[in-house]
């Protein structure tokens, strides 16, 4: 399998100042074009992890992009297969914990193929709005096609954006969710600060992410599954073992429950809590902006 690391170029709607939600460029045809990422000197401040590998910070986004361009078409099937369908319950748990109401404005960040967006769109109703934002054009395209096929068109906008510098005005959203996305972000602290800024006072962030299993037994079984079985399913079904090897590695490199909670507090979030799901294989963190 060939992942075009370092070669993938994406045109991002990032860092160009904040725009009002109503004036955000909604991407109807997401295209790839030049990206102005310059590799920098190799010192520890400029490096980060990509799975178990150490890479230049400036390269990580495009390497992650490579993975998700590669898995986009098979993403939903693989999700069901790899989690035995349990990811649907984790996502339901997230929706329930969000306390979403009709009329709310929701950002489904790193929303990929739009599972959360679909549910939110129905629950916020005609007076509400959901923005599906993702850094990756292939994932956004698959998501947009899927949601349109379901007849979900009225209150959804699609925005290609990097979680680290969100192109929205301050105090825009009632709810921001990021499901299985944060571990792929290069500068997670920057992303948390950016999310904090676009939330309205009283708004809340929900982070659904793989985490550290509470019990040693679960941990061991889970390790075996992720490193021995998962890449093989990836190889057989999606013909892409390398991407699924990265997914397994990136899960292990992601901060554990308490560390992530601390990071949220550093970014300004209050009343920060988390709940372990499926023995801590996954955790849902929640924090408020007041």
């Amino acid at each position: 399998m060939f992942i075009p690391f370092g070669k993938t170029t994406i045109n991002l709607l990032i860092g160009r100042g904040c725009s009002k939600l109503s004036t955000i460029i909604v991407i109807s045809e997401v295209k790839m074009s030049g990206q102005d990422q310059k590799p920098q000197k190799n010192d520890s401040e400029n490096t980060t992890h990509f799975g178990y590998k150490t890479v230049e910070k400036t390269d990580k986004a495009s390497m992650v992009a490579g993975v998700f361009h590669s898995v986009a078409q098979q993403y939903d099937v693989m999700n069901d297969l790899m989690s035995f369908g349990v990811h649907r319950l984790w996502k339901r748990f997230t929706i329930d914990a969000s306390g979403v109401r009709p009329g709310n404005t929701v950002l489904d960040l790193a929303g990929g193929t739009g599972d959360l967006t679909a549910k939110f769109s129905k629950l916020v109703g005609r007076d509400g709005k959901v923005v599906l934002a993702d850094i990756n054009s292939s994932m956004l395209n698959v998501g947009r096609d899927k949601l349109r096929d379901k007849g979900l068109v009225q209150n959804i906008e699609y925005v290609q954006a990097n979680a680290e510098s969100l192109p929205f005005e301050e105090n825009t959203f009632d709810i921001v969710t990021i499901a299985f996305g944060l571990r792929n972000v290069t500068d997670k602290d920057k992303a948390l600060r950016s999310i904090y800024s676009v939330l309205k006072p009283g708004g809340r962030l929900l982070i659904l992410e793989f985490s550290k299993p509470e019990h040693e037994l679960v941990n061991k079984a889970y390790d075996f599954y992720s490193f021995n079985i998962l890449p093989k399913i990836g190889q057989i079904v999606a013909k892409d073992g390398d991407s699924y090897q990265y997914l397994a590695e990136s899960i292990r490199m992601h901060p554990d429950q308490e560390t992530l909670k601390g990071m949220m507090e550093n970014a300004g979030f209050e009343q920060t809590t988390y709940k372990n799901l499926t023995g801590g294989v996954v955790a849902l963190h929640k924090g408020y902006k007041f």
Partner: peptide
């Protein structure tokens, strides 16, 4: 139990959200 209707399909969504 929340009712969602659209031109394509009508549906009842079941959640544990009680605030709305």
């Amino acid at each position: 139990f929340s009712v969602y209707t659209s031109s394509k399909n009508n549906q009842i969504l079941v959640t544990t959200i009680s605030q709305s």
